[in-house]
């Protein structure tokens, strides 16, 4: 189909009626989701949040489902959050870390995952340092795939839980001004965040040092770009502050962390000088004293711990919705 028609095809074929299933079989990125998909995930997450407040925080829904968490890259929060979500849904969980596996012996990605799937696994949650690794896998295997971060591309569940947390704190996402501040270049949270917030109708600005903001990101997404922290904070309702990803930076993009902190570190003093309240978010892990000072991170404006809490509910919703529409593999 030619590209012009492909767009129309998408517009007419996406579920427009509430109550339809997700338009995707895998969660590879927010880019593939529709507004309806995101609303459905949020609505389902609301119900899981209620379950997480009960004395018994567990439902038997996925008791016949086996989920493998394949992490080729380090993670604490995301893996614990996924694992907790899977266990709260009564799924059987297998954890797989690349450092302790045959990947070190030269096995390919498809072989590794196919071997795991041969043991009757239904879903794969994967983090990989290569962009597109989950997309590649989705084309080759039967199981439903959830992207838990692929290189500098996307981290969809983080973006969903960020938007969900904004919705929880401010009532809605639509019309809110959200500034994403810090290392935009190397951040998958930023990219997924931009997709998600725009689909939910929020206004987005990215801010940070020019060396950490892709040159044409403003034109590409129709978002605001600022190189001035104060300007960004003065504009926004919500500030999502990102970590400097030193491990992904191949060349020096600023002189020192100290200099970065001087120019882009969010402090109580700056926030107080704005004369308005803004919501502070951070996907973690925080480098205290670099991008965010402790007096802000631990203040009442910060919803960082709520983000972590909501992460479990969002991931339960995603797993529930994807598990419910996977097709039984033919034996």
């Amino acid at each position: 189909m030619i590209p012009a028609n492909a767009r129309l095809f998408r517009i007419f074929c996406v579920p427009l009626v509430p109550g339809m299933p997700l338009s995707v079989k895998h969660l590879l990125g927010i880019r593939d989701l529709t507004r309806q998909d995101i609303d459905l995930i949020f609505q389902t997450a609301d119900n899981f949040k209620e379950i997480l407040k009960r004395p018994i925080k567990k439902v038997p829904t996925l008791r016949d489902t086996t989920i493998v968490n394949v992490f080729f890259e380090n993670s604490t929060r995301t893996r614990i959050s996924f694992e907790l979500a899977e266990r709260r849904l009564s799924a059987d969980v297998i954890n797989f870390t690349a450092s302790a596996s045959s990947v070190r012996k030269g096995e390919t990605l498809i072989d590794t995952v196919n071997n795991i799937l041969a043991m009757k696994v239904d879903m794969v949650v994967m983090r990989h340092s290569a962009v597109g690794a989950p997309h590649f896998l989705a084309g080759h295997i039967q199981a439903a795939i959830v992207n838990a971060g692929d290189g500098i591309n996307e981290h969809p569940t983080q973006a969903l839980l960020d938007a969900f947390s904004i919705r929880e704190r401010l009532g809605k996402v639509e019309g809110k001004k959200v500034a994403i501040i810090g290392d935009i270049m190397h951040s998958r949270v930023a990219l997924s965040g931009i997709y998600c917030l725009q689909k939910m109708g929020a206004e987005v600005m990215v801010a940070g040092p020019p060396t950490l903001i892709p040159k044409y990101i403003g034109e590409a997404f129709g978002i605001r770009v600022s190189y001035d922290l104060r300007e960004a904070l003065a504009w926004c309702d919500v500030a999502n502050i990102l970590r400097i990803q030193l491990e992904r930076q191949n060349m020096p993009v600023f002189s020192s962390l100290r200099e970065y902190s001087q120019a882009y570190g969010v402090t109580r003093a700056i926030l107080e000088s704005l004369g308005k309240e803004i919501v502070i978010m951070h996907p973690g892990p925080i480098n205290r004293g670099v991008e965010l000072n402790s007096d802000v991170a631990d203040s009442g404006n910060s919803i960082i711990l709520q983000q972590v809490e909501n992460g479990v509910a969002i991931r339960m919703a995603v797993l529930y919705l994807l598990a419910g529409q996977r097709e039984e593999p033919a034996d």
């Binding site: 109550g19 389902t44 609301d46 119900n47 379950i51 016949d64 489902t65 849904l89």
Partner: peptide
Amino acid sequence: LDITFYRDDFNKGEALHIPNQTH
């Protein structure tokens, strides 16, 4: 009480149910 997550027909070829609120 919403019973969606306790159904015994989850992924048994039946349609997926969207949960309602439990209060």
